[in-house]
Measured scan of single mutants.
Amino acid sequence: KITVTFNGEEKARRYYKKMQKHNLKVEIRVENNQWVVHVE
């Protein structure tokens, strides 16, 4: 499981979509004013 933190929504969403293309289970959320993407 990987957790990647971004300081911008745009970058986070781009990464999220990229990971989805690989058929990975991805989850995006905001934690402590940071955009966090969890990849299983």
Rank of each mutant, 00 (worst) to 15 (best):
K1P: 10
K1Y: 14
K1F: 14
K1R: 12
K1N: 11
K1M: 12
I2P: 03
I2H: 12
I2S: 06
I2L: 12
T3F: 07
T3Y: 06
T3S: 09
T3Q: 06
T3P: 02
T3D: 04
T3A: 08
T3M: 08
V4I: 12
V4H: 06
V4N: 03
V4K: 10
V4L: 11
T5F: 13
T5L: 11
T5A: 09
F6K: 01
F6T: 01
N7S: 13
N7E: 14
N7H: 09
N7L: 09
G8P: 02
G8F: 11
E9L: 11
E9K: 09
E9Q: 06
E9P: 08
E9A: 08
E10N: 09
E10H: 10
E10Q: 09
E10I: 08
E10R: 10
E10L: 10
E10F: 08
K11E: 15
K11Q: 15
K11H: 14
K11S: 15
A12T: 02
A12Y: 05
R13H: 08
R13Q: 09
R13V: 10
R14Y: 08
R14G: 05
R14N: 12
R14P: 02
R14I: 12
Y15M: 03
Y15Q: 02
Y15V: 02
Y16K: 05
Y16T: 03
Y16P: 01
Y16H: 04
Y16D: 01
Y16S: 04
K17C: 07
K17F: 10
K17Q: 13
K17H: 13
K17M: 13
K17L: 14
K17W: 10
K18L: 15
K18Y: 14
K18C: 13
M19S: 03
M19T: 02
M19F: 04
M19W: 05
M19P: 01
M19Q: 03
M19C: 06
M19N: 02
Q20V: 11
Q20H: 05
Q20Y: 05
Q20C: 13
Q20T: 07
Q20E: 07
K21N: 10
K21Q: 13
K21Y: 08
K21V: 07
K21T: 09
K21A: 14
H22D: 07
H22V: 06
H22M: 15
H22Y: 13
H22P: 04
N23S: 07
N23Y: 12
N23H: 12
L24C: 06
L24A: 07
L24Q: 06
L24S: 06
K25P: 04
K25M: 09
K25W: 09
K25T: 08
K25L: 09
V26T: 04
V26M: 04
V26D: 01
V26I: 06
V26G: 02
V26Q: 01
E27S: 13
E27Y: 10
E27H: 07
I28T: 00
I28M: 08
I28C: 04
I28E: 00
R29M: 12
R29E: 07
R29T: 13
V30R: 13
V30T: 07
V30L: 14
V30H: 14
V30I: 12
V30F: 15
E31Q: 07
E31K: 05
E31R: 04
N32I: 04
N32P: 03
N32Y: 05
N32R: 05
N32G: 14
N32V: 05
N32H: 08
N32S: 06
N32W: 04
N33Q: 08
N33P: 01
N33E: 09
N33A: 07
N33G: 15
Q34F: 11
Q34R: 12
Q34C: 06
Q34I: 13
Q34H: 10
Q34M: 14
W35P: 00
W35Y: 04
W35A: 01
W35N: 00
W35Q: 01
V36M: 05
V36K: 04
V36L: 06
V36W: 03
V36E: 04
V37D: 00
V37M: 02
H38Y: 15
H38G: 04
H38E: 15
H38A: 10
H38S: 15
V39E: 00
V39A: 03
V39T: 03
E40A: 08
E40V: 11
E40L: 14
E40S: 12
E40M: 13
